[in-house]
């Protein structure tokens, strides 16, 4: 390798010119002048070869390196007032959402607790009662004895395999519970 970034007699830098040539950054006149030198000067040819290899290696190395932001050229921007204002409103909005969700959950739980006491006149009420029975059996430890559980289910439970419950099932159960709570309230009002 004979080329370098040292200044050549005519003021340019051979390796830097070669890099620009390889990257396609020379103007038309610079390009033609550079290619004239390629024909007669081995050092220029070597510089091009080195620039190509360095470029390829750099492309792989850069792709594999963490991104570094240009701190020196991109100072942090001062956010406009409107943006700052929107940041102020965001936490308050999230508190409102949280409070609403808590209230809804409390109402739902209250309705569920009233469910078994209501008349079992509807199919949905029976579903609730079955659930409360299941909880009761589970608390007393007699669930396994009382319930007819398939062997395959026992094996599945013991294997620790995670059972994927589809979202639609959660949605359906929630809807049923909401409806059951609504029915219970209606029945109490009728009574």
């Amino acid at each position: 390798m004979t080329g370098s970034f040292d200044q050549t007699p005519n003021g340019d830098s051979l390796n830097w010119l070669a890099v620009q040539y390889v990257l396609g950054e020379l103007s038309e006149s610079e390009l033609l002048a550079f290619e004239e030198r390629l024909e007669t000067d081995l050092a220029v040819c070597e510089a091009v070869a080195a620039a190509v290899r360095l470029t390829f290696i750099l492309q792989v190395a850069v792709a594999d390196s963490p991104v570094v932001p240009a701190f020196a050229t991109n100072p942090p921007r001062v956010l406009p007032d409107a943006t700052v204002h929107s940041f102020k409103t965001t936490p308050r909005g999230s508190w409102l959402v949280l409070a609403g969700a808590t209230t809804a959950a409390a109402v739902l739980l209250a309705a569920m607790s009233l469910g078994p006491a209501s008349s079992p006149s509807t199919q949905l009420a029976r579903v609730d009662r079955s659930a409360s029975e299941l909880v009761s059996l589970w608390r007393t430890g007699s669930a396994v004895a009382e319930l007819d559980i398939d062997d395959a289910d026992v094996e599945l439970a013991e294997s620790g395999t995670e059972v994927a419950v589809p979202d639609w099932l959660f949605a359906a159960v929630s809807l049923e519970q909401s409806n059951a709570a609504g029915n219970s309230t209606d029945e109490r009002q009728e009574n």
Binding site: V62, S65, V68, A70, F71, A72
Partner: peptide
């Protein structure tokens, strides 16, 4: 390399 140089190399080469 300094971050500003790294940034230019990445933007140009990658």
């Amino acid at each position: 390399l300094p971050p500003d140089q790294q940034h230019v190399v990445r933007q140009r080469m990658y």
